[in-house]
């Protein structure tokens, strides 16, 4: 149980893997914002082409991306049905009770599904090629301007780093507690929802108390080693932008410009 990985990071040496985590975070962020402006098949086709090219560059089997889509299948289905039922317009194809299925409704449903798939693919590119600790480091760096308005970015980053380190430990501990309770005849996977919810209680209380004790021990250990504050903490890995990051940013700017050219041009 010691090798529990959190996140969906798959190690590799692809072009995307080697990018600075900040670059990847900015690119995915800008991409998702820009994609929300897509409003016809041409703009969707362009945004899709950009993602597909990036997926290719990650050198990962497509199955991994498919796995990202699976857990959210019901959300997609639910949203598509909502679009079908709640989009007014003409021509009306048929009515189901108070709801009407219209041609614009079907178009909307398709666009929304595409939008979903694109968001998931883009997010998967980021989490597949970036370990969670890098995401945390990148976030600290990207949020540093907020220090000026009094956001304790350094403290938050330290907490995030400690928390990320503790997640696998606590998952391990949970497994141990579960096994201990199971050996005493507890069952976590049978019965209705209420019985299952009740089964969680004897799991969480020891977990909680153990976790609080660990936090206090860690605080003592840090103080003993002379920890003063999070602000002056030094780093083992220092982020720096490389040439490939410049290439990535250029590609992003190109993507955004072409997107808006297609969008305005087609609306003429």
């Amino acid at each position: 149980m010691n090798n529990i990985m959190i996140g969906r990071f798959v190690p590799g040496n692809s072009w995307v893997h080697r990018l600075d985590p900040r670059t990847k975070m900015i690119v995915t962020f800008v991409y998702i914002i820009v994609m929300l402006w897509a409003n016809n098949w041409q703009t969707y086709a362009w945004t899709a082409a950009f993602v597909v090219a990036l997926v290719k560059l990650t050198d990962q089997p497509f199955k991994l991306y498919w796995d990202g889509l699976k857990p959210i299948f019901w959300l997609i289905l639910f949203t598509v049905i909502l679009q079908l039922l709640f989009t007014p317009g003409t021509p009306i194809l048929f009515s189901v009770g108070p709801f009407q299925v219209t041609v614009p409704g079907i178009l909307n449903a398709i666009y929304v599904m595409v939008r979903f798939v694109l968001i998931i693919l883009m997010s998967t590119i980021l989490t597949l090629t970036t370990p969670p600790t890098s995401i945390a480091n990148a976030l600290e760096s990207l949020l540093s301007p907020f220090k000026k308005i009094g956001v304790p970015v350094a403290e938050l980053a330290l907490m995030l780093a400690i928390a990320l380190r503790f997640v696998p430990l606590l998952m391990d501990e949970m497994q141990k507690i579960m096994n201990a309770q199971k050996s005493r005849g507890m069952s976590f996977s049978t019965g209705g929802p209420i019985k299952r919810a009740k089964a969680i209680i004897p799991l969480l209380i020891p977990l909680f108390i153990g976790a609080l004790q660990r936090a206090l021990d860690l605080a003592n250990a840090m103080e003993v080693r002379g920890f003063k504050d999070a602000v002056q903490r030094t780093k083992y890995r220092i982020l720096s932008y490389q040439k490939i990051d410049k290439v990535a940013f250029t590609a992003l700017i190109g993507f955004v410009i072409i997107f808006f050219v297609i969008k305005t041009w087609l609306h003429g």
Partner: peptide
């Protein structure tokens, strides 16, 4: 220091519970 570690560990508890259950 205690606040930092307590916050971090409770955050980890939340995440661990989400992942395990």
């Amino acid at each position: 220091v205690q606040n930092i570690t307590l916050i971090a560990v409770i955050a980890a508890v939340y995440a661990a519970i989400t992942f395990v259950i």
